[in-house]
């Protein structure tokens, strides 16, 4: 394992470039949730925007520049709580969508497992990282989430985009912006 670094989104390019595969990070601040269907919609919104002239295109639900996306579909909160269990889902399912978002300024993703060669190349090209949180530790990870608010695609239920306030959210740099990965196989 490398060093432990504190991250506060939105993330500057220099901070992202300083991260090395194997570094442990603790994230404090705002991150956004999105998994399969939300990714599909975000990318459709980007494509529609690009195909239109002028600024009449569809606005994205949050600013991607410097943003951190967490691949998670939480359980519903019990009364009086902000969120239920909230661990990472398998990142590979987002491989077809992530490059588009990285090209628009996304700086970090939190998930679990492997990413495609295309994603790795895009991380390198634009300066972004993929972080791994502990899959199957949703109860433990939920303790780092202070608030959660649905900001888009409410009809998707658990897959809606949520704005999360997190404190010292733990993850490991699984793929850095220099082409390195912590995975050996």
């Amino acid at each position: 394992m490398g060093q432990t670094k504190k991250l506060q989104p939105p993330l500057a390019d220099s901070i992202v470039r300083s991260l090395k595969a194997g570094d442990e990070v603790l994230i404090t601040g705002v991150i956004y949730t999105a998994r399969d269907m939300a990714h599909k919609r975000l990318c459709e919104a980007i494509c529609r925007k690009a195909s239109l002239t002028g600024d009449a295109g569809q606005k994205l639900p949050f600013e991607l520049e410097g943003a951190v996306i967490y691949f998670v579909g939480p359980t519903p909160p019990r009364p009086g709580r902000v969120i239920g269990s909230a661990g990472p889902t398998t990142s590979a399912r987002m491989d077809n969508f992530s490059p588009k978002l990285i090209a628009k300024g996304l700086k970090a993703m939190i998930g679990k497992g492997y990413r495609s060669d295309e994603v790795r190349d895009t991380l390198k090209k634009y300066g972004a990282v993929h972080l791994s949180a502990i899959g199957g530790a949703g109860a433990l990870l939920s303790k780092h989430i202070l608030s959660a608010e649905v900001i888009a695609y409410e009809d998707l239920g658990t897959e809606a985009i949520r704005k999360l306030q997190v404190v010292d959210f733990p993850a490991v740099v699984a793929y850095d912006s220099h082409g390195n990965t912590i995975y050996k196989l």
Binding site: V72, G73, P74, T75, R78, G84, S85, A86, G87, T89, I134, G135, G136, A137, G138, A139, L140, S142, K143, T158
Partner: peptide, 20 residues
């Protein structure tokens, strides 16, 4: 951390994993 997660899940009634 997985052992700790199991303790929190049982004690605080938070599902072990968000994928139930």
């Amino acid at each position: 951390q997985l052992i700790e997660n199991a303790g929190i899940a049982k004690g605080e009634k938070i599902p072990l994993c968000q994928d139930t």
